[in-house]
Design a binder for these strands. Structure first.
Lengths: 203, 203
DNA sequence: CTTAAATGTGAGGGTATCCTCAGATAATTA
DNA sequence: TAATTATCTGAGGATACCCTCACATTTAAG
């Protein structure tokens, strides 16, 4: 079954000009999605913001859904890359240091790319991108078991799932907070995850 | 400045028939919002599901936004009522018992009324209903200070804010989980909040 | 029973957005 | 330079949805 992205595939840029325009379009889409949310965002607004016409926009993306998914996947790959380096360091980090890194990574990324958070929570098509998140969960679960081998696989997975959701679920508080409160708030977030993990991993 | 609800006010039911229809409309709206989300929900679908015509729907609700707000406020009042009885008991409950009650209340309510969760997270108009949530935070903060008087007001408020967000932020995991996993999952949720509160209240 | 008030109906006007397409412009190739 | 390929433009067709309104039906009041 061809997805909304595959069917009706569009031009892939062959020249530098095309690549730059496509990048500008993704940038503009990020701004508009972050500001208006997925549903309220309009293709016209994205085209205007990117400095091109609607026609040009539709040459690279067959529809709004495909554009959103492309943007989400683009960010998702960068996210995965950062997690890779974090997980590589996991074995030689204390739990507290690990929690530090996790929140700095996630909150920082969401703050830098608010559209990613928006698209993660939007219902794009009939299913969210279960694949990427599933992979991330597995990797975190494996890292946890490396730290504590007596952890069962199912338990490790559940721990990873809940931990990720804590980070994601707390983020809106950060997004809304005044700049002055953010440092304290992140410390509070870290305490949440840290005390949970300590309670859960302490044998 | 008149809100979208106040301006263009509609008929209030004068007969039993009208009240029943209005209730049926709110029920239908809850089902459709829960299934499709606020944006994708259509007034036609709500009217059909409620067994009435579009015209009838618009006699009671001037527009989609007003309908959503009415539904959200309706649930919000029931929610506040339940919190009132919980907070009344708070002083004579252990932290663990309190956390138990909180999750049973919230997760149960969200599960029973998924549309409430949907509408809480939707952007209705230009601002979310800051009022109700602000009041709830204050009440929880006050209850916490009753339990631990040396807590500063600002700290208590932040604790309440973060705790509420934990509950709300974890809920999607419950909503998606298979029935067999839910009991274990809720236990996990309770551990998250409990270990955080213990770490935070321990002096 | 008559009259008035309350409630109900659904076709269709108004509007906004998605997306296409025929033709124009720019870059590359021969 | 000429031909070909890549990219761009924006008016407008198609569609979906919000919401109104003139009129019909049901209930209550006198």
């Amino acid at each position: 079954m061809p997805s909304d992205i595959e069917k009706n595939a569009r031009r892939k840029p062959q020249q530098l000009r095309g690549e730059q325009r496509m990048a500008a379009m993704l940038d503009a889409a990020a701004a508009v999605f972050a500001q208006s949310g997925y549903d309220a965002a309009t293709m016209t607004a994205i085209a205007e913001r990117s400095g091109s016409s609607i026609g040009a926009l539709y040459q690279y993306f067959p529809n709004k859904l495909a554009l959103a998914k492309a943007l989400r996947d683009y960010y998702g790959e960068e996210m995965a890359r950062r997690w890779t380096t974090l997980i590589a360091d996991a074995s030689q980090l204390s739990i507290a240091a690990l929690v530090d890194r996790i929140f700095d990574l996630m909150i920082g990324f969401f703050n830098e790319h608010p559209a990613y958070f928006t698209l993660l929570n939007a219902t794009l098509g009939y299913q969210r991108d279960a694949g990427a998140r599933q992979r991330l969960r597995s990797r975190i679960g494996a890292a946890l078991r490396e730290k504590q081998p007596e952890l069962e696989e199912g338990e490790a997975l559940r721990l990873a799932t809940v931990s990720l959701q804590i980070v994601k679920g707390l983020n809106p508080l950060y997004a809304v907070a005044a700049a002055a409160e953010r440092v304290e708030l992140v410390a509070e977030f870290k305490l949440v995850l840290l005390s949970y993990l300590k309670a859960r991993l302490r044998k």
